[in-house]
Design a protein around this nucleic acid. Sequence first.
DNA 1: CGGGGTATTGAAAAGGTTTTCAATTGTAAA
DNA 2: TTTACAATTGAAAACCTTTTCAATACCCCG
Lengths: 339, 339
Amino acid sequence: MNRPPDQDLTILDIAREAGVSPATVSRVLNGTAGVRADKAERVRAVIARHNYRPNPFARGLLGQQTGVFGVLVPQLEDEFYGKIVTGVERELRREGMHLLCSLGHDDPGEEAQALELFRERQVDGLILLADQIDDAAILRQMEQRVPLVLINRLIPELEPHCLRLDNVRGGYDATRHLLDLGHRRIAHIAGPLERPGARERLDGYRTALREAGLEPLEWLVVESEFSEDGGYLACKRLLGRGEFTALFAGNDQLALGAIAALREAGLEVPATVSVIGFDDRTLARFCFPALTTLHYPMLEMGARAARHLLALLRGEGPPALSRLRPELVVRSSTSAPGS
Amino acid sequence: MNRPPDQDLTILDIAREAGVSPATVSRVLNGTAGVRADKAERVRAVIARHNYRPNPFARGLLGQQTGVFGVLVPQLEDEFYGKIVTGVERELRREGMHLLCSLGHDDPGEEAQALELFRERQVDGLILLADQIDDAAILRQMEQRVPLVLINRLIPELEPHCLRLDNVRGGYDATRHLLDLGHRRIAHIAGPLERPGARERLDGYRTALREAGLEPLEWLVVESEFSEDGGYLACKRLLGRGEFTALFAGNDQLALGAIAALREAGLEVPATVSVIGFDDRTLARFCFPALTTLHYPMLEMGARAARHLLALLRGEGPPALSRLRPELVVRSSTSAPGS
DNA sequence: CGGGGTATTGAAAAGGTTTTCAATTGTAAA
DNA sequence: TTTACAATTGAAAACCTTTTCAATACCCCG
């Protein structure tokens, strides 16, 4: 059923065997213009018999669609991005599309290189997960009329194609969970605030506090890069500033670092301090104590990006996409204060 | 410095501006045949000025190199494969090569599809991490004269291009570590034994035992798929069979499942039973107790595969590659018996 | 200065598809 | 039966590069 194609047949061979001109075969292949039904059927039969597929290079040379999508992610060492790519791939495979994969390594130059690559290779569409490169460079891509979807980034001009997590909601839910448990003094380790995602989570945190009648205290918030070491150091800073019974970390790695710092300070998690993370990486399930966190639906995010792109390609206009919502996963790192 | 190319210049434009024929430009580009030094210099200057790059589709159409490598991995949800791909990408990027990425989803049909894709797209080389497809299908690829590297798989005909971890050694080192701690009754949860890697780890285990003057006991070994649930069930089976003070799990996930089962049975790790894993995924560092394990150098494996392929492409013949050696990482899940 | 050879160079073909444009066929109306 | 159109179809050009083959330029020697 998945027989390899007979050697390398060209459209000429198919045309000859079907008794038509190559132009007609092409028309059947692309569904363009009118080909008389009986003739089309005959051509289709020959195509199927030999499992013929047009040479992608000849097509590309004419500026046609290439059947390849470009995907840019910062890296693949973190399962986070791997899962997103997996989500993308599953959807695309179904449509017979392929994936040209590039890593940005958190470097604006490499991200730009990747875009250049994608242009040169005439990809049919782009899925970008790039923090470093500036809006202008991305917009320039758009002028090449390549459909494009951004993940975790907002460019106002491209808003309908920006797929994001509802981070405000996530920050709110995380904080709310701690409030519901009875915590009143809740610290927050934010990710780098130049990142919109980190800012949004902070916003959600503040909103939840205010809604509970608490004024957010400046000294309870520290900023850190998204890493375990960062979390460790940030938590130490917090501990030096005053007391708190709960901590909302901007992501799971920060949470792990923070837990290490708390443990080192002789504080028990969650007995003395509750900790909640964000993203729900695999290790959140296995670390000790197992981390309460907000689940980032990575596969789903990738799948949506792919479907969005396919829709654009078909000229369907972007699907109305609500922002994806993170989901609270309660494990063992949070509890009522002093329990 | 990384200026995008001026619109889309063709080799004709370059030729005209340099006052030579397109054939000469082509020769300069590819370093073929003799072009008089001064002329070559002039051409190079024009190429550089416009940052011209030949159209990859026109090249592909002529059966030339495409500058793209195919990479097939089972999936990307597990950081394991993501890290390998990252290692590959880093090396390739340096050479200006790109990555067509396909997932096999542990399905022989999808793996075959991927190979077909790679053939159709005329990739310059292949890096395969595929367990399901049979040797013959892979060897058939080889007849297309595409350089190819296999990771974690041995096909005798392709031996010089098979890049593997020294699993026997790993199994030996793991068991030896437990023996050195003073354990005598050491159980093993093996991965699926139709996988060579799993068999090799088992071999290493047995060798170490024999070397220590212990006869491997059949009932101390169970087989399981590589998953947490599998580890949990396998460990329960072991517990039903008799007593042991240490357990060597075929990989980290198995170890985690086993630890859950041990905990459920009221046995402490490592106080009552020591557990050692394999691979050293991120979670091994963070789970509780932190897992002693053998580190699989994933980035290095990917990087070597890429360098190997590049060497083949340059016709250098395969680098003499010793099998990569896993490294023991001692954490908190192992200790002397009864301590 | 002529001959033989080598080193450079360019013209043209090839590679497989799509698309334009003109030609042909078929159909319906007169 | 003829005319006017629309529906199909095919020939040929175009896309951009590499490579073959023949031609030209250059060099050294006699």
